[in-house]
Amino acid sequence: MQIFVKTLTGKTITLEVEPSDTIENVKAKIQDKEGIPPDQQRLIFAGKQLEDGRTLSDYNIQKDSTLHLVLR
């Protein structure tokens, strides 16, 4: 499925993911596309910070959802 990741600069990254993918996995995909190390990434969805060990389906993230990427 496709999800979107919006950065603070207003750029939107499109990712191909599975509901069973972990947040860690998603961060690795963002690193592949953007070169941002996962340890600098914070992903936010519906006002919640997403934890590495959980999956997209744990957070009820569905296709065409938009996550927000904050760098630390």
Results as ranks from 00 to 15, higher is better:
70 V>E: 06
70 V>L: 04
41 Q>F: 08
40 Q>N: 08
39 D>W: 06
61 I>L: 04
49 Q>D: 15
36 I>L: 10
21 D>Q: 09
13 I>N: 02
34 E>Q: 07
28 A>M: 10
50 L>R: 01
12 T>F: 09
13 I>Q: 04
62 Q>D: 05
68 H>Q: 04
60 N>Q: 06
3 I>K: 00
38 P>G: 11
60 N>E: 06
17 V>P: 02
11 K>N: 05
41 Q>D: 01
13 I>F: 15
36 I>D: 03
26 V>E: 00
4 F>L: 08
58 D>H: 14
55 T>K: 07
23 I>R: 01
27 K>R: 09
50 L>N: 00
59 Y>P: 00
39 D>F: 13
54 R>D: 07
30 I>W: 01
71 L>K: 12
2 Q>I: 12
48 K>F: 09
37 P>L: 15
28 A>G: 13
63 K>L: 04
24 E>W: 11
56 L>Y: 01
5 V>A: 04
69 L>N: 01
39 D>Y: 15
19 P>T: 08
59 Y>L: 06
17 V>R: 00
65 S>V: 09
18 E>R: 13
31 Q>G: 15
58 D>N: 05
53 G>A: 08
31 Q>M: 04
45 F>H: 08
49 Q>P: 11
58 D>K: 04
56 L>K: 00
45 F>S: 05
10 G>M: 11
37 P>V: 12
67 L>I: 06
18 E>D: 12
4 F>V: 10
36 I>K: 03
24 E>T: 13
1 M>E: 07
25 N>V: 13
28 A>W: 05
66 T>V: 10
9 T>D: 11
26 V>A: 04
71 L>G: 12
5 V>F: 04
12 T>M: 10
3 I>V: 08
20 S>T: 14
41 Q>S: 09
11 K>D: 13
62 Q>V: 12
11 K>G: 05
23 I>E: 01
44 I>L: 08
69 L>K: 00
7 T>M: 12
44 I>A: 04
6 K>G: 10
40 Q>K: 10
44 I>E: 12
55 T>M: 03
1 M>Y: 14
46 A>Y: 12
22 T>S: 07
64 D>E: 14
68 H>I: 03
6 K>D: 13
